[in-house]
Design a protein around this nucleic acid. Sequence first.
DNA 1: GATGGGGCTTCCCATAGTGGCAAGGTCAAG
DNA 2: CTTGACCTTGCCACTATGGGAAGCCCCATC
Lengths: 145, 145
Amino acid sequence: MNIGDAAKASGVSAKMIRYYEETGLIPPAARTEAGYRIYSDQDVHMLRFIRRARDLGFSVDGIRELLGLWRDRDRHSADVKRLALAHVADLRQKIRELEDMATTLETLAACCHGNDRPDCPILSELETASVLPAKKGAVRKLNGM
Amino acid sequence: MNIGDAAKASGVSAKMIRYYEETGLIPPAARTEAGYRIYSDQDVHMLRFIRRARDLGFSVDGIRELLGLWRDRDRHSADVKRLALAHVADLRQKIRELEDMATTLETLAACCHGNDRPDCPILSELETASVLPAKKGAVRKLNGM
DNA sequence: GATGGGGCTTCCCATAGTGGCAAGGTCAAG
DNA sequence: CTTGACCTTGCCACTATGGGAAGCCCCATC
């Protein structure tokens, strides 16, 4: 099948399929004489695997590792589990950071009258305080979320 | 003072100060005859404001609005509050998504023996299931977090 | 058989925010 | 006057994704 059909069948856009091929996440697709990429059901299966991993927030590099393990019949499930739990730790770290931001902002907003007067504790705080002193080593990479 | 000192004093890197100037978030700095940017304590004050807003997860565009309100002596605190609470809603939405991912993965990982055998429910799930069926309208932009 | 529409190809650009590097100018201390 | 630390601009990189243009291809319909 052509790339458009593979995209529909897998839920990965044609654009991203080409990108994944270009960056080596997936092997180069076979081509027709005219240069059209062709995909088998197997390929679609793999693309769906990728899409699901992305839905779980794995980065492309994480997916690369997952795919390696997926293809390796002699894999140790411990390796998969380690990968998954490391990702969970990243997610939880990120959640904590966002949570801190949200509660700080909510606290400030609760103190703001929210009327047509200009005085506002939110702006005052931004102006003067050190808002999040404990912001060391933030998990800065959690793919574009 | 020079850009390096302003960076140290504000906590915003020199690189980012130039970027903010280039993109119009802050007005162009005054220059010495040799072309060096010079910053006043006022400028550093503004840069610190920006950094704190970023620590609270505001996007550069959000900060642009905040700065506008900050500078506007006739602002309505209601506008600031609305901005803040809208951001909180975005944060909470994002948190929910990450939370879903984390719990799904944890559930799967809990079912994985994590030994040297290859069978692994995590991979099985990625292979077959529709992992996150409720993934409509994800908050895709929450500045690079 | 020609024509049209839709799909495919590659290539380039843009996003947000940040880091890094390189070539060259500048300033201050020794 | 030299040296080293700083400044300037400009360009490239990253992640993951979308948009679009120019040009070729395939199939169905007239």
